[in-house]
């Protein structure tokens, strides 16, 4: 299926998402903080990255910004998944180029549907990607 990187500092959530996505047939790698996330991003290719916002070493916005400013990784779908409900932060995430925002507590079904949509959009052509700023 597809390669997904899950970045999350809460151990329980990290394992839970990993298990759910694996069951759905995805290849899942995990990172528990910003530092590990950057390493994983440098070493591998992913179709979708799911990231938390507040975590050690680097925040989720930095992850989004790094992905979007790197021409080879620009196409990667990014879903921000955080408990932060503050409107400004959410807008900030979208402005930086996040594709989706899920507020914790999340619905597992919803997450899977959004991933599928994101993947479908992506495969329907690189045009979509270039349209994004």
């Amino acid at each position: 299926m597809s390669n997904i990187l899950v970045i999350e500092d809460d151990d329980i959530m990290l394992k839970a998402i990993r298990n759910i996505l694996r069951k759905d047939g995805h290849e899942v790698l995990t990172a528990k903080d910003g530092k590990e996330a950057f390493e994983r991003l440098d070493n591998d290719e992913y179709d979708v990255v799911i990231t938390d916002l507040m975590m050690p070493y680097a925040n989720g916005l930095e992850v989004v910004s790094r992905l979007r400013s790197n021409p080879t990784k620009r196409h990667v779908g990014v879903i921000v998944c955080s408990s932060v409900g503050n409107e400004e932060t959410i807008t900030e995430a979208f402005r930086l180029g996040a594709d989706d925002y899920l507020k914790k507590p999340i619905m597992a079904g919803e997450l899977m549907i959004r991933i599928r949509k994101l993947l479908a959009n992506r495969s329907s052509g690189a045009k979509l990607v270039t349209k994004k700023k």
């Binding site: 910003g34 507040m54 975590m55 050690p56 070493y57 680097a58 925040n59 932060v84 503050n86 932060t89």
Partner: peptide, 11 residues
């Protein structure tokens, strides 16, 4: 500075 930017706080 990086670590100061990662406080667990919204605002």
């Amino acid at each position: 500075v990086r670590s100061l930017l990662t406080f667990n706080y919204p605002k």
